[in-house]
Design a protein around this nucleic acid. Structure first.
Length: 316
DNA sequence: AACGGCGCCAACCGCGCAGCT
DNA sequence: TAGCTGCGCGGTTGGCGCCGT
């Protein structure tokens, strides 16, 4: 038996996305908003699985994604949230709006897991005062497992409430009647396309279907018009394509960018602002629930709690 | 310079859940 | 209420680039 495949595997392209495919996808989302992923291949001619389209959008093309190395602050947040929530990457990503769950998951698996393991081993092997006491040996615990579980349950409840508060203040997804222009992404996509065109032999040969070509022809003016707006940026020029995405958000939880989004035309699909006539709620006078949560996560109590608690189980 | 090992990260896969009929 | 469909999530994999030998 088993579930049927999510899409027809025949003729579906796999592997890395080309800049042209990215542009087609971005254009589709501009016009229709994120969602209804099933319709994307049929509408655009993209020879991609709907899931692949959604993944590409959420993990790479979606505006507001910060790329590059994680800050110490983000690192601490991830460590503590992982200890609290487990491998709930989507939930953890909800507290780090500029990072995708995939990014966090990758960072955890490739960096933090190893790092914390080393810290743990180091602290045990060397029997020295711990520079990081997150993973103190369970032998030294004065807290019983029952007490620990109760505290964990209490903290999860608190975190859930904070998350609920945070999410309830966010705006819904973009209105399909007022598609949001994802200028930041489109800009980079346009740049990508230009780079890609430079590197593509002018043979007239295309990797795409005719449907896809006609669709991309139709969207070219859209991309150009958005690109020509030249949203102000002080990013360094780079030849690395998407690597030079300008990080428009200077504060993780301060939503600084939201206050300036009108002027710089950066927008986010999942965050409050006002862009291109789309009303997005924000209240600069009231403290962000995420800020509250951040404070809660990082306050002395939490650190003390983590100091005295073993999370070895998370380091599988 | 060539080769192999390793790390990183984008993308894929399978399952679960929620909404709709 | 059961079945179907679409979406989201977490685990895993494949490919590319870097580094050491």
């Amino acid at each position: 038996m088993g579930r049927p495949p999510c899409c027809d595997k025949v003729g579906v392209k796999k592997g890395s996305w080309t800049p042209e495919e990215d542009i087609i996808l971005v254009s589709y989302v501009q016009q229709n908003g994120p969602g209804n992923w099933r319709a994307v291949p049929a509408t655009t001619g993209l020879r991609r699985c709907s899931k692949s389209c959604r993944l590409r959008w959420t993990n790479y093309l979606r505006p507001g994604i910060k790329r590059g190395s994680f800050t110490d602050h983000e690192e601490k947040m991830i460590i503590q949230l992982q200890a609290l929530l487990g491998n709930k990457w989507a939930a953890i990503a909800a507290y780090l709006p500029e990072r995708t769950d995939n990014d966090i998951k990758n960072y955890w698996n490739t960096h933090l897991k190893k790092k914390l393991k080393n810290l743990e081993n180091g602290s045990i092997d060397q029997d020295q005062p711990k520079t990081n006491t997150l993973f103190s040996s369970s032998k030294s615990h004065s807290i019983s497992r029952g007490q620990w579980e109760k505290r964990l349950q209490d903290d999860i409840t608190t975190a859930k409430q904070a998350l609920h508060d945070a999410l309830s203040s966010d705006s819904p997804s973009p209105n399909n009647n007022n598609p949001v222009l994802y200028a930041s992404s489109t800009q980079n996509i346009a740049k990508l396309l230009k780079d890609w065109e430079k590197n593509t032999p002018k043979s007239g040969e295309s990797k795409c279907s005719s449907t896809q070509n006609s669709y991309s022809n139709n969207i070219s003016t859209t991309v150009d018009s958005v690109y020509s707006k030249e949203a102000p940026t002080n990013c360094d020029e780079s030849e690395s394509g998407m690597e030079d995405l300008c990080p428009p958000f200077e504060s993780m939880f301060g939503f600084k960018a939201l206050e300036t989004s009108n002027s710089d035309e950066f927008s986010r699909s999942a965050s409050p602002s006002v862009v291109n006539g789309v009303e997005i709620k924000t209240d600069p006078t009231s403290p962000s629930p995420l800020s509250m949560l951040e404070n809660w996560l990082l306050d002395f109590e939490m650190k003390d709690y983590l100091t005295n608690t073993s999370f070895d189980q998370n380091l599988v």
